[in-house]
Amino acid sequence: YTAFGDLEVFLHGLGLEHMTDLLKERDITLRHLLTMREDEFTKNGITSKDQQKILAALKELQ
């Protein structure tokens, strides 16, 4: 049995499950992801397509 964390649930909701391992390897938490700047997305290997999905979701949360 494995409990999913906030990061996994957030990514799954956006259809971005493939990013879970990448972000965990880089010790990026959901809190960090929510406050990242555009250059940090790129530096951490997050594609512009995935970045757009994340940023759109963040706008909806605000």
Rank of each mutant, 00 (worst) to 15 (best):
Y1D: 15
Y1R: 10
Y1L: 10
Y1V: 10
T2L: 07
T2D: 04
T2Q: 13
T2N: 08
T2Y: 04
T2G: 06
T2P: 07
T2H: 03
T2R: 08
A3Q: 13
A3T: 14
A3H: 11
A3F: 10
A3G: 12
F4I: 13
F4L: 13
G5W: 05
G5H: 09
G5A: 14
G5P: 15
G5L: 07
G5Y: 08
G5Q: 14
D6K: 04
D6C: 02
D6A: 10
L7K: 01
L7W: 02
L7T: 06
E8C: 04
E8F: 01
E8H: 08
E8P: 01
V9F: 07
V9Q: 15
V9T: 15
V9D: 15
F10I: 03
F10R: 02
F10N: 03
F10L: 07
L11Y: 00
L11M: 05
L11I: 02
L11P: 01
H12R: 15
H12I: 06
H12M: 10
H12G: 14
H12L: 12
H12C: 11
G13K: 15
G13H: 11
G13N: 14
L14A: 15
L14W: 09
L14F: 11
G15D: 05
G15V: 00
G15L: 01
G15P: 01
G15S: 04
G15C: 02
L16G: 01
L16R: 01
E17Q: 11
E17H: 15
E17P: 06
H18P: 04
H18K: 04
H18A: 07
H18C: 01
H18W: 07
H18V: 03
H18N: 07
M19C: 12
M19H: 09
M19I: 14
M19S: 05
M19E: 00
T20A: 13
T20H: 15
T20V: 13
T20M: 12
T20N: 07
T20L: 14
T20Q: 11
D21E: 14
D21T: 13
D21G: 10
D21H: 13
D21R: 07
D21P: 14
L22A: 12
L22M: 13
L22S: 13
L22F: 11
L22Q: 15
L23H: 01
L23P: 03
L23E: 02
K24H: 06
K24F: 06
K24V: 06
K24Y: 12
R26G: 06
R26T: 01
R26D: 01
D27G: 15
D27K: 12
D27V: 01
D27A: 08
D27M: 03
I28L: 07
I28F: 05
I28G: 01
I28W: 02
I28A: 01
I28E: 01
I28Q: 02
T29E: 08
T29C: 06
T29A: 03
T29G: 08
L30T: 06
L30A: 06
L30Y: 07
L30I: 09
H32E: 14
H32Q: 13
H32I: 06
H32P: 02
H32Y: 05
H32R: 13
L33R: 00
L33D: 00
L33V: 02
L33A: 00
L33K: 00
L34R: 11
L34T: 13
L34V: 11
L34Y: 12
L34W: 11
L34E: 11
T35S: 12
T35M: 09
T35Q: 12
T35K: 10
T35N: 11
T35G: 08
M36E: 01
M36L: 04
M36W: 12
R37S: 14
R37P: 10
R37H: 11
R37N: 11
R37T: 15
R37Q: 14
R37Y: 02
E38L: 03
E38H: 06
E38Q: 10
D39T: 12
D39N: 09
D39F: 05
D39K: 10
D39P: 10
D39W: 06
D39Q: 08
E40P: 01
E40Q: 06
E40N: 02
E40D: 12
E40W: 03
F41C: 07
F41R: 05
F41A: 06
F41Q: 03
F41N: 02
F41S: 02
F41E: 01
T42H: 11
T42C: 10
T42Y: 09
K43Y: 03
K43H: 06
K43T: 10
K43I: 07
K43M: 07
K43A: 11
N44P: 02
N44Y: 10
N44E: 10
N44S: 09
N44I: 08
G45P: 00
G45Q: 04
G45L: 03
G45S: 03
G45V: 02
G45D: 04
G45E: 05
I46R: 02
I46Q: 01
I46G: 02
I46M: 04
I46C: 04
T47S: 14
S48V: 12
S48W: 07
S48P: 11
S48D: 11
K49D: 12
K49R: 11
K49N: 11
K49E: 11
D50F: 00
D50R: 00
D50Y: 04
D50Q: 11
D50T: 02
D50H: 04
Q51I: 04
Q51D: 00
Q51C: 09
Q51E: 06
Q51G: 11
Q52A: 12
Q52K: 13
Q52S: 09
Q52V: 11
Q52N: 05
Q52C: 07
Q52F: 06
Q52I: 10
K53T: 09
K53L: 06
K53M: 06
I54N: 02
I54Y: 01
I54D: 07
I54Q: 05
I54V: 08
L55A: 14
L55K: 15
L55F: 09
A56V: 11
A56P: 14
A56D: 13
A56T: 12
A56K: 14
A57M: 04
A57Q: 09
A57E: 08
A57W: 07
A57K: 14
A57C: 06
L58Q: 15
L58H: 15
L58M: 14
L58T: 15
L58D: 12
K59V: 09
K59S: 13
K59P: 15
E60M: 15
E60R: 13
E60W: 15
E60D: 12
E60Q: 14
L61D: 10
L61K: 14
L61V: 13
L61Y: 07
L61R: 15
L61T: 15
Q62R: 13
Q62S: 09
Q62W: 03
Q62A: 08
